[in-house]
């Protein structure tokens, strides 16, 4: 909801009138706010009416966009969103110097819940882009019509949400190496030569890339391949490697098609 300047503050108030408030016999207003508990005195209504006339204050031109681009990351803003996914997935072989990093258990249940919550809340509506960070790297559009609907970072895990009609996909990127023992049993596999964990029923895919852990929620098999192809960088060698990896994913995961 967006308000026109000067219209969103106490629109029901005008001058000294407090619309809709019943009057007591003595003339004082009786608040209709059930939480008020006590009657408001007439002078209180006057003060409230005066304050209700205060106009909205517009931010300086461009401030909101600039504020949205301001993004102090906890762990350094070297990579963000799908740019991180691109590098992590494609060039993971280069990033093998992960000694000293703490093994972490990707909170797959929580990430699946985050994805479901955002989809359910409609915070990132499909269609026109409403990106929280316009300066974030990564593609705006993926193959098969998935478009970036928004991105957000919480608890050091970056989430990019893509939408295609009623379908949506979240790509989470976090730093660290996977603590495999902490993941539910039964889902271990290999994707494109990398160790991975999958839960086809919940459309969860976790891939370790050396420096970062990529968790994809909501994709079917074809879409996994396409998304990974879509996050290719501009370097031709990257493209080739992505295609190889995508083919391997399709073969090895055997996901059910996206509904």
């Amino acid at each position: 909801m967006e308000f026109a300047s000067g219209e969103h503050h106490a629109p029901h108030r005008a001058a000294l009138e407090i619309d809709g408030l019943p009057r007591r016999a003595g003339g004082g207003p009786v608040t209709t706010d059930p939480g008020a508990g006590l009657d408001e005195e007439p002078w209180e209504a006057e003060i409230g009416a005066l304050l209700g006339r205060l106009p909205s204050v517009d931010p300086p031109e461009g401030f909101i966009d600039a504020a949205l681009r301001h993004r102090p990351l906890h762990s350094g803003r070297i990579l963000s969103g799908l740019a991180a996914l691109t590098v992590a997935t494609v060039a993971g072989a280069v990033l093998t110097g992960a000694a000293g990093r703490t093994d972490v258990a990707p909170p797959v249940d929580e990430l699946a819940a985050r994805h479901a919550t955002i989809v359910r809340a409609g915070v990132f509506p499909g269609g026109p882009l409403d990106r929280l960070d316009p300066a974030a790297e990564g593609p705006v559009e993926l193959p098969r019509g998935f478009r970036l609907a928004g991105d957000v970072e919480a608890e050091d895990i970056r989430q990019a949400v893509y939408a295609r009609g009623d379908e949506s996909v979240s790509v989470f990127v976090q730093e660290g190496r996977i603590s495999w023992d902490a993941l539910p049993a039964g889902g271990s596999t290999e994707i494109g030569g990398r160790r991975a964990w999958v839960d086809p029923a919940r459309r969860l895919t976790v891939i370790e890339t050396g420096e970062r852990i990529v968790t994809i929620v909501g994709l079917g098999s074809d879409d996994v391949a396409d998304v990974l192809a879509g996050v290719r960088g501009e370097e031709p060698s990257t493209l080739d490697r992505i295609h190889d990896l995508a083919e391997a994913i399709v073969i090895q995961l055997g996901y059910a098609p996206a509904e």
Binding site: M1, E2, H8, V57, D58, P59, F63, A67, L68
Partner: peptide, 24 residues
């Protein structure tokens, strides 16, 4: 979402802070 409510947030911030610098 944040952008579409930016003006609302800014106006509230300004009323609380009383100046543009602190509001920003």
């Amino acid at each position: 979402m944040a952008r579409s409510h930016g003006r609302f947030l800014y106006s509230l911030a300004y009323r609380l802070c009383g100046n543009h610098q602190d509001a920003q």
